[in-house]
Design a protein around this nucleic acid. Structure first.
Lengths: 205, 205
DNA sequence: GTCTATACTGTGATAGAC
DNA sequence: GTCTATCACAGTATAGAC
């Protein structure tokens, strides 16, 4: 792997572990056992590293959010959500310090907001699909509120786990998926409700 | 107002506005038109200021969370939640940079977690009360998931508004209350469900 | 491409006069 | 209590040799 690539991967790793504000360019080069000068040969600033990692994330998430306009049952949703949570986890540094990171980099702010908007649209699409099939019983304002709650939970679940439970592992992601789906379930018909219980038992421990 | 007090109030104001990591002791003293030396006469470090503000917050929130063990109807809950959101907003700097702030100050981490736990207990108490009265239809695991979702929403609503909508005003808080209650409503009986619609219309715009 | 050396800046914090 | 002056240090970034 070329040095440039190694810098990006190590930065992502350290950002996720320690939080972007707490990772210095010196630490990155130290960990890679290269000189700071070398790092600055490949990237003219720390923001450049951050921005390139954001590109990665943006591509990954954008692709994921191209939700097929077909009905999803609970199992499909579970799977889809798990992919979203995994993607968020891979770039959790963006989420754990969102407010701070975006406050310092206005361009990223707009791009992040665009992704949030995409998430809301994808969520609404899934919910409306279920509604039109008559499988989800809710009025429009309930659907709006529900989708906002879902996006919020997806956005901050990892931060919440980090603060409330002091750790983030694979189980944390599964639990996040469960928390999101449990918000949808009360609007579903009986059979689908039981499906969640089954999925929960299948995935938890 | 004594200088010591002025430092605390101005720090709180700046922390909330700019984020704690972006506020230097020099900025604080500048804004107060005192010298940095003077600031350090009153506080031996920046963490000391932060800690004292945390004391304020902790006292305020702890008092609030002493929920009376009596049933609350939707209106009571709305009012109670609004007080919680106002308190969070007053100390929003703690929330907007939670992960970062707590990563740097381990003692605050424990204290913050204790408050989160209190919030969960208070929420569970309210929900269980409703359940025992037969006004809330949900099984134990639904109640657990619901209370976790509620605490998460309350904790990160302001961050979410900040990121997704780029602003936090009085309306934001009202909307946060609405988002939380909308999670409870699907488990309630018909009359209570309509109550939320009324409250929503009364408070929005 | 990579290194060493170094400059520059901002920030937390202290010393000592008034 | 308040000020001025100053330190120490960390973090970003550059210059120039190899």
């Amino acid at each position: 792997m070329k040095t440039r690539e190694r810098i990006l991967h190590k930065s992502l790793e350290l950002f996720n572990e320690l939080g972007e504000p707490n990772v210095t360019t010196l630490l990155i080069s130290d960990e890679l056992e290269i000189s700071p000068g070398n790092l600055y040969y490949h990237f003219k600033s720390k923001i450049d590293i951050l921005t390139e990692l954001f590109d990665w994330y943006e591509n990954e998430m954008s692709a994921l959010l191209e939700v097929p306009d077909e009905p999803m049952d609970i199992e499909d949703q579970w799977f889809f959500l798990h992919l979203v949570f995994e993607s968020i986890a891979r770039y959790q540094f963006l989420y754990k310090d969102v407010v701070n990171v975006l406050a310092r980099h206005d361009k990223l702010r707009l791009r992040f907001q665009r992704i949030i908007t995409k998430k809301q649209k994808a969520t609404l699409q899934v919910l409306n699909n279920l509604h039109q099939q008559g499988r989800l019983q809710a009025n429009p304002s309930e659907i709006t509120a529900l989708s906002e709650n879902i996006v919020l939970t997806a956005t901050f679940w990892i931060s919440y786990a980090n603060v409330a439970k002091s750790q983030v592992d694979e189980m944390t992601l599964v639990q996040g998926v469960y928390q999101v789906i449990s918000q949808v379930v009360p609007f579903l018909e009986g059979e689908q409700r039981e499906m969640l219980e089954q999925l929960k038992n299948a995935y938890f421990r």
